[in-house]
Simulated scan of single mutants.
Amino acid sequence: MIDPAAIFHTGIAVADMAAAQDFYARSFGVEWAPVHCYRPLPLWIAGEGWREVAIDTVYSRRGPHRLELIQGPKGSFYDPAAMRTATHTGIWVDDVGNEVERLATLGWRVLAAKGSPQERFGNMVYVTDGGPVFELVGRELEPMLTAWFSEA
């Protein structure tokens, strides 16, 4: 069962990382961890299969709730103009595959994931009920992300 107290970030797809970092820093006073670049990031997309995308992503340093900015290429899953995940809410879960199965029985559908359905969607999956998008993130990634938040 998903615990709403496990919500840890709001993700925003942006067209210009530097401009977005500056805007949100001025707006909310956030400080940023270093930007990480994934080249490539393999992503399984519902209805399309496996795609490789290049993204830059960054999190605000202070929590427990953080902002995440993601910049991807035009036409990709992370293109803010595509509005698929222009904004999403990230939440820790103990078992991504089990949560996807449970949510599917309630009408949720998978948009994209770090693993295929045969791989039980890996350690990260985007789901929607047709409205908001949630990113379910496996708790096994928490130590890596916690270290990233505190990087200089």
Rank of each mutant, 00 (worst) to 15 (best):
G49M: 01
S76P: 06
Q118P: 00
M1V: 13
R61C: 07
V125L: 04
F121N: 00
L145P: 02
V93D: 07
N98Q: 14
A152I: 05
S27G: 13
F77M: 02
P73V: 10
I2Q: 06
R84Y: 11
P73E: 14
S27L: 15
R26P: 02
L103C: 00
A46R: 14
R84H: 14
W50L: 13
G49I: 13
S116V: 00
G97E: 08
G115A: 08
V93F: 04
A18N: 12
R84S: 09
V35E: 11
Q71T: 09
A25G: 14
K114I: 04
M17Y: 03
F8G: 04
K114Y: 06
F134D: 05
V53R: 01
V125W: 02
L43A: 08
G11D: 10
G130D: 11
N123T: 00
E140S: 10
M124H: 10
R120M: 06
F8E: 04
R102L: 12
V58R: 05
Q21G: 11
F149M: 07
W108M: 06
V100L: 08
V125K: 05
A113T: 03
W92M: 06
V133N: 05
R102G: 01
G11W: 14
I7S: 10
R66K: 11
V93K: 02
A20L: 01
L67E: 06
L69P: 01
D22Q: 11
M1N: 04
I45S: 02
P4R: 00
Q21A: 01
G75E: 08
L69R: 11
E31Q: 14
T105R: 13
G131S: 14
P80T: 02
M17D: 07
W50A: 10
V14Y: 04
A82T: 06
E52W: 02
A13C: 15
I7P: 09
L67W: 15
Y24A: 07
F23E: 04
I45M: 13
R51E: 14
L111E: 08
P132R: 13
Y78W: 15
A112V: 02
A147N: 03
P64W: 00
P132L: 14
V137N: 10
T89W: 07
P4Q: 03
P40W: 05
L67C: 09
G90R: 07
R139P: 05
R109W: 02
L111T: 13
E101G: 09
A25N: 02
R120I: 02
P143R: 07
E68Q: 15
L41I: 00
E68T: 11
M144K: 09
P4F: 03
K74W: 01
F149V: 01
P4H: 03
E48T: 15
P42N: 09
V100W: 06
